[in-house]
Amino acid sequence: MIAAEKGAYFDEARSAEIVIDRNADCPDARLAEIVAVVVRHLHAAVKEIDPTQEEWLQAIAFLTRTGHMCNDWRQEFILLSDVLGVSMLVDAIANRKPSGATQSTVLGPFHVADAPLLPNGADICLDGKGEPLLVRGRVTDPDGRPIAGARLDVWQANDEGFYDVQQKGIQPDFNLRGVFETDAEGRYWFRAAKPKFYPIPDDGPVGQLLRRLGRHPYRPAHLHFIVTAEDREALTTHIFVPDDPYIGSDPVFGVKESLIADFVLRDDPARAADLSLRNPFWEVEYDFVLAPARAAAG
């Protein structure tokens, strides 16, 4: 009979320590650290919850259904991470900014690479639908100096809450998408359509969880931006419409107060004509502040 090592037998009081000790020979120190933290918190949560066997089997079944919903174009586990606030927490930790720099938020699933590079002032609303919107601002460093040649990759949902990739054959390709470069003064401007709130996918287990928690699936209206410049940290963020009915209850927790912009309705026929916009039109001005690039890890 082989003698058991110390701690080999399970004990409720020391459950986490017993599991962690079993991994002592792991050759990957970082993996061992991560698993130890997860085990410690998971065992503490189970002890605090004090689940029945039936409740634990329900939890396993929920995770199984979540996995079954995943495919090449849908990742239900990311959605679960989103609605539990974990995606935003990881984003916040990974993208800590110096004081004054624009805050980041989640990328979202509808970014498309290789959107067309357009001149400032171009209209990204290719089908002409929705309320016209002028978007403008500057890109600067934290000291207020303009950054010329910064690139802004922008995309948004239409006035019905759909992205072009969700409505192939209905919306034109690259509708409400474009890439712009700042001028010598760091300025950018383009024409668009005022965005609208829309639901995250809620036909799977994560949507069922939201309903059982008494929560809705609607993301507040926003514009997406990826802003890049030489020697600057890339910024992935949104700007949000302040009077959206869901601004205070984003199901993926993507709203930060500093990202709520001022959308103003303009009734100015002469200016609208000069901008080739229908009157009245909306206008939002938002300045992006890029942090210096972090030094590469040694």
Rank of each mutant, 00 (worst) to 15 (best):
P51R: 00
A273W: 01
D250L: 02
D72K: 13
C26N: 15
F110G: 06
A92R: 14
N175S: 09
G161Y: 07
N175Y: 00
A113C: 09
I124T: 03
L31E: 08
H224A: 04
D287C: 07
L152S: 03
V165N: 05
Q166E: 15
A29I: 11
D262T: 09
R191M: 04
E17F: 04
L107D: 09
P142K: 05
A293K: 11
A4M: 13
C125S: 11
V264S: 06
G85R: 03
F190N: 05
T236H: 11
G248C: 02
L79Q: 14
A192L: 01
I78G: 07
F225Y: 15
I170Y: 06
F281I: 10
A273V: 02
R96I: 09
I93S: 09
F62M: 10
A44I: 04
P172F: 05
E257V: 11
W56D: 08
P27K: 08
V39A: 12
V264I: 15
V135M: 09
K168R: 15
A296M: 10
P109L: 09
E230V: 04
V38S: 09
F263D: 04
A150K: 07
R151H: 09
V165H: 05
V241L: 14
F174H: 12
T236E: 12
G67S: 09
P27T: 01
V135H: 01
Y9R: 14
I18T: 14
L42E: 08
Q171E: 12
G248D: 14
A29C: 03
P245M: 01
V284H: 03
W155C: 03
D141Q: 08
N175F: 00
D123C: 13
L117V: 14
A8L: 10
R96N: 07
P280G: 02
L265S: 02
L176D: 04
V165G: 01
A16V: 07
K129C: 12
A293R: 13
T105H: 11
N120K: 05
E185I: 02
A270W: 02
E131P: 01
A234E: 14
R65V: 01
L107Q: 13
A122M: 08
G178L: 03
E54M: 07
I78L: 12
G67K: 10
L209Q: 08
F281G: 06
I170H: 04
R14Q: 15
D159Q: 09
D50P: 04
